[in-house]
Every structure is written in structure tokens, then in C-alpha cells.
Amino acid sequence: VTLFVALYDYEAITEDDLSFHKGEKFQILNSSEGDWWEARSLTTGETGYIPSNYVAPVD
């Protein structure tokens, strides 16, 4: 499982989006939707859509 880490803070715009803070880690559930990925936060356990350009793979 490839994990991703937030590079910036993000505040949800719609109820389907997931708010997060810089440094938060995610498991990507679906990355086939283009620039918005469905993800689960490993910090909160919540799922929602995140902007793919706000995250990077964890080394």
C-alpha cells in the first residue's frame, strides 16, 4: 500500500471533500477520478476527496 502525505493544509469546499493538515498521511482508495482522489486519513479515519496536487508519496 502506497501512502501519501499532505504537503499543505486543505479546507474542504464541499461535503465530499476531506479537510486535512500538512503532514497528515493518507491511504488512497481511488485515484482514477483525475485530479481529485478518494482517500482515507490515517489520522482521523475519515474518507473523502482530496486534491492530488496537495499530496506526495511517502518514501
Rank of each mutant, 00 (worst) to 15 (best):
V1L: 13
V1S: 13
T2W: 11
T2D: 10
T2C: 13
T2S: 10
L3M: 10
L3Y: 13
L3A: 06
L3G: 03
F4W: 15
F4N: 01
F4Y: 15
F4L: 04
V5N: 02
V5W: 07
V5I: 13
V5R: 05
V5C: 06
A6P: 00
A6M: 01
A6Y: 01
A6Q: 00
A6G: 04
A6S: 05
A6K: 00
L7H: 03
L7R: 04
L7P: 01
L7K: 05
L7I: 10
L7F: 03
L7Q: 04
Y8D: 07
Y8M: 09
Y8I: 06
Y8K: 08
D9K: 04
D9A: 06
D9E: 06
Y10N: 03
Y10P: 00
Y10F: 11
Y10H: 06
E11T: 14
E11N: 11
E11S: 10
E11F: 10
E11Y: 11
A12K: 08
A12C: 05
A12P: 05
A12T: 04
A12D: 02
I13M: 14
I13Y: 08
I13T: 14
I13N: 10
I13P: 08
I13Q: 15
I13H: 12
T14K: 14
T14N: 15
T14Y: 15
T14H: 15
T14D: 12
T14L: 11
T14C: 15
T14P: 03
E15S: 13
E15F: 10
E15D: 14
E15G: 13
E15P: 13
E15T: 11
E15R: 10
D16M: 14
D16R: 15
D16C: 14
D16K: 15
D16F: 15
D16L: 14
D17Y: 15
D17H: 15
D17L: 13
D17N: 14
D17F: 15
D17P: 02
D17K: 15
L18N: 01
L18R: 02
L18D: 00
L18Y: 04
L18G: 01
S19V: 03
S19G: 07
S19L: 02
S19R: 04
S19C: 05
F20W: 01
F20H: 01
F20E: 00
F20S: 01
H21V: 13
H21W: 08
H21A: 12
H21L: 11
H21T: 13
K22S: 07
K22C: 07
K22P: 03
K22G: 04
G23I: 01
G23R: 02
G23T: 02
G23Y: 05
G23F: 05
G23C: 06
E24V: 04
E24G: 02
E24A: 06
E24W: 09
E24S: 04
E24F: 04
K25R: 13
K25G: 04
K25T: 11
K25L: 15
K25Y: 15
K25Q: 11
F26M: 06
F26L: 08
F26V: 03
Q27T: 10
Q27R: 09
Q27M: 14
I28S: 01
I28H: 01
I28L: 06
I28R: 04
I28P: 03
I28K: 04
I28W: 02
L29E: 05
L29G: 04
L29W: 06
L29P: 04
N30Q: 08
N30Y: 07
N30F: 07
N30K: 09
N30L: 06
N30R: 08
S31N: 12
S31E: 09
S31M: 15
S31P: 09
S31C: 13
S32V: 10
S32F: 10
S32G: 11
S32T: 11
S32Y: 10
E33F: 13
E33A: 14
E33K: 15
G34V: 14
G34Q: 13
G34M: 12
G34W: 11
G34H: 13
G34Y: 10
D35C: 13
W36M: 12
W36A: 06
W36P: 06
W36E: 03
W36H: 08
W37R: 02
W37H: 03
W37V: 06
W37G: 00
W37C: 04
E38R: 10
E38P: 06
E38Y: 15
E38I: 15
E38D: 04
A39W: 01
A39G: 05
A39D: 00
A39K: 00
R40H: 07
R40A: 05
R40D: 01
R40W: 07
S41K: 15
S41R: 14
S41T: 04
S41Q: 05
S41F: 03
S41H: 07
S41C: 07
L42I: 09
L42T: 07
L42F: 07
L42C: 10
L42H: 05
L42M: 12
L42V: 09
T43F: 10
T43H: 13
T43G: 06
T43V: 10
T44A: 03
T44Q: 03
T44I: 02
T44M: 02
T44L: 02
G45M: 08
G45I: 02
G45A: 05
G45S: 05
E46W: 09
E46Y: 10
E46Q: 15
T47M: 09
T47A: 07
T47I: 13
G48S: 01
G48I: 02
Y49E: 03
Y49W: 14
Y49V: 07
Y49Q: 08
Y49H: 08
Y49R: 15
I50G: 00
I50C: 01
I50Y: 00
P51Q: 06
P51H: 09
P51E: 02
P51G: 04
P51R: 09
P51Y: 07
S52N: 06
S52P: 07
S52H: 08
S52I: 06
S52Y: 08
S52T: 07
S52R: 14
N53T: 12
N53C: 13
Y54E: 01
Y54P: 00
Y54T: 04
Y54S: 09
Y54M: 10
V55K: 01
V55Q: 01
V55D: 00
V55T: 04
V55G: 01
V55I: 10
V55A: 04
V55M: 09
A56P: 01
A56S: 09
A56W: 09
P57E: 08
P57I: 09
P57V: 08
P57N: 05
V58A: 10
V58R: 04
D59V: 13
D59H: 13
